Computed example of a mutant assay.
Amino acid sequence: MTRELDVGPMQRMIRRALTAFARALLSAVNDSGGVQVVQISLSSTEVRDGSPRIAEFGFSSHPPEGSDCVVAFLGGDRTKGIVIGTCHQPSRPKNLGPGETILHSQDGKSVYLTASGGIVVEAKGQPVVVNDASDVTWNCSGKFKLVAPGGVEIDAPLVQSTGDMQDNSASNPHTIAAMRQIANLHTHPVKGVQGGGSSVTSDAPNQQQ
């Protein structure tokens, strides 16, 4: 008799365990509150609105419509679902290597921590802005290279360098310090010197920068 009485509760427990998790499709997002809430479709006839989506601290995103979801139901109750995972298949970066990580958006912008190629930031032709930094320091063990076809603008009261600076490096072999030294020591040949208050125009300097 004891076994027969236990069958009902046991079946209910098994049923709740089997329905504790489900896969769903995300159809809408409300990101205005302290906790993001979403609308999910568990099937063509089962839609849940206002389901909270819980993400790790320090990471926040707005999943696109049609994203896959993993939903956990508290106590197996289908009215108490919490979204604990999302994936947007069309925009998910593929073929990552072991140990690699990438932070990405739907339109392809990303910060890619590669296994052997360093860190790659892909801005997709859009601006990159750093706001309200007290100081910005780049510690490089090698060369810092800046490629800017549109030019470089520096809005600063002073630009300092502990080393030499060189412009037109493809054709100019001298640094600014070397050109200053040449300018300080150069001489001009003066021809047709006259006395009194006469003046003459000198030739080009003997030393060329």
Rank of each mutant, 00 (worst) to 15 (best):
D6P: 02
V7N: 08
M10F: 07
Q11W: 12
R12A: 15
I14M: 12
T19W: 07
A20P: 09
R23F: 10
A24I: 08
L26D: 02
N30A: 10
D31L: 01
G33T: 04
V37H: 12
V38D: 05
Q39K: 12
Q39P: 04
S41F: 01
L42D: 00
S43Y: 00
S43M: 02
S44T: 06
R48Q: 07
I54C: 02
A55V: 07
F57C: 02
F59H: 10
F59I: 04
F59Y: 08
S60L: 03
S60F: 06
S61A: 14
P64S: 02
E65A: 08
D68E: 12
D68K: 11
V70A: 15
G76M: 12
D77T: 14
D77Y: 14
R78M: 13
T79Q: 06
K80S: 08
G81P: 14
G81V: 03
I84F: 05
T86E: 09
T86K: 11
C87A: 14
C87F: 11
Q89P: 05
Q89K: 09
P90K: 11
S91L: 11
N95C: 15
L96P: 07
P98Y: 15
G99L: 13
I102T: 13
L103I: 15
Q106A: 15
D107K: 06
K109S: 15
S110M: 13
V111W: 03
Y112M: 08
T114G: 14
T114F: 13
G117A: 11
G118V: 05
V121A: 03
E122Y: 05
E122M: 10
Q126N: 01
P127D: 14
V128G: 10
N131W: 06
N131C: 05
S134Y: 03
S134F: 11
V136D: 03
W138L: 07
S141P: 13
G142A: 08
L146G: 00
A148Y: 00
P149V: 00
V152Q: 07
I154S: 13
D155F: 09
L158F: 13
L158C: 01
L158I: 02
V159L: 09
Q160K: 06
Q160S: 12
D164V: 05
M165P: 01
S169W: 02
S169H: 11
S171L: 03
N172S: 06
H174K: 10
R180D: 15
Q181E: 02
N184D: 09
N184C: 00
H186K: 09
T187I: 11
T187L: 04
H188T: 04
P189E: 13
K191T: 11
G192M: 03
Q194I: 04
G195A: 10
G195T: 10
G196W: 03
G196Q: 07
T201D: 12
S202W: 12
P205I: 05
N206Q: 13
N206A: 06
Q207I: 08
Q209W: 01
